[in-house]
């Protein structure tokens, strides 16, 4: 197998919870607790899970917006998590980000031209001012913004248009991977479809890889190649889109998929409703994090942490149900 574009190995990020009078830490939030995955060039991996499960933290850790607690982040086999800020800076060009909120993701005091020029200048991608202007004009065209956008302020645009500016800024660095952190969640349905299609077009044209962080399974099914399901800081199931959506294995994935709205009121539904809330990531339950809400939990789940391992080729699950060849008593 060729070398993946991005590889994340056993990533952990713990946030100190509260600081005392002079800055000492008390308690730790286990936001991401041992996550591993990889993304090939031109591939889309969707990271799904409910709020607070750590999906955004994974994205921000890859961007190195903070130092990770442990683990490794590699771009084309090169570790980037232990580089100094200065060493990392030129490599930052390869991974860019599009955020959820189209309003707070653009500096209100910068014109569109300056917003787009920032990464181009930082990475030295334009030799002259004329080339810079040309690149900015191209970016505005590629994300289908009005031709006169460059001289305008962010507040003159609608939410969907601002998200296009955010995408143009990410593209300005000519990246290999774009992390879309809930990039379409804040948009209304028609605009959402436009942005999703734009992202897919760009992926095809430019060979971009996408890490698509989302809780919207309908959109994920539409645009991703592979899916990783997260629960409380860990990946519980990962595989190709077809496998995850057609034959989910992990009880949590099943519950998550059964919660997707079906646009047919007559359709027979066999919903798995989870009881209770997500446990606190400050004191995650021992063993399998999901055992407190799992409909098929066993005694072993409370003690032993299941490992993510291949169930079928490329389709891995972290669940004790699938450890033994066949247990039989549990219906799938």
């Amino acid at each position: 197998m060729t070398q993946p574009l991005l590889e994340v190995r056993n990533l952990k990020k713990h946030f100190p919870l509260r600081t005392t009078f002079f800055g000492g830490a008390q308690g730790v939030v286990h936001a991401v607790d041992g996550v591993s995955f990889s993304i090939a060039k031109g591939e889309t991996l969707a990271l799904v899970g409910e709020s607070g499960c750590g999906k955004s933290t994974v994205g921000r850790a890859i961007l190195r917006l903070f130092d990770i607690t442990s683990g490794e982040v590699l771009i084309e086999g090169r570790r980037i998590d232990d580089l100094t800020a200065g060493q990392l800076r030129p490599l930052r060009r390869r991974v860019q980000v599009v955020f959820q909120d189209p309003f707070s993701s653009l500096n209100p005091r910068m014109r569109v031209r300056d917003i787009l020029a920032e990464p181009i200048r930082n990475f030295g991608l334009a030799a002259s001012d004329a080339e810079l202007d040309k690149k900015i004009a191209d970016l505005i065209e590629i994300v289908r913004l009005p031709g006169d956008s460059a001289g305008r302020w962010p507040h003159e645009f609608s939410g969907g248009q601002r998200q296009r500016i955010g995408i143009a800024r990410a593209l300005a660095a000519a990246p290999d991977l774009i992390i879309c952190d809930e990039a379409v969640s804040a948009l209304d349905v028609s605009v959402k479809a436009q942005i999703v299609n734009l992202l897919q077009d760009l992926q095809r044209q430019l060979g971009l890889a996408l890490l698509f962080i989302s809780h919207d399974l309908a959109i994920v099914e539409h645009m991703t190649h592979r899916v990783a399901v997260m629960y409380l800081g860990r990946i519980v199931e990962m595989g190709p889109k077809q496998a995850i959506f057609a034959t989910p294995r992990h009880p949590y994935t099943k519950a998550l998929l059964s919660a997707v709205p079906v646009p047919d009121p007559e359709a027979p539904r066999n919903r798995t409703i989870l009881k209770g809330d997500v446990p606190s990531p400050i004191n995650p339950p021992p063993g399998c994090h999901f055992h407190t809400r799992c409909p098929v939990a066993m005694a072993r789940c409370r003690i032993e942490t299941p490992v993510l391992r291949d169930h079928e080729p490329d389709h891995s699950v972290a669940c004790h149900l699938y450890d033994a060849p066949t247990v039989g008593s549990v219906d799938g």
């Binding site: 800020a85 930052r92 500096n107 990464p119 990475f123 660095a173």
Partner: peptide, 22 residues
């Protein structure tokens, strides 16, 4: 904590420039 500051960090802007510009 604004996303545009995170985006600027991802875009390779140095800390002094982030303070000055953003």
């Amino acid at each position: 904590e604004q996303p545009y500051v995170d985006a600027a960090i991802a875009a390779g802007t140095t800390t002094p420039m982030i303070i000055k510009r953003h």
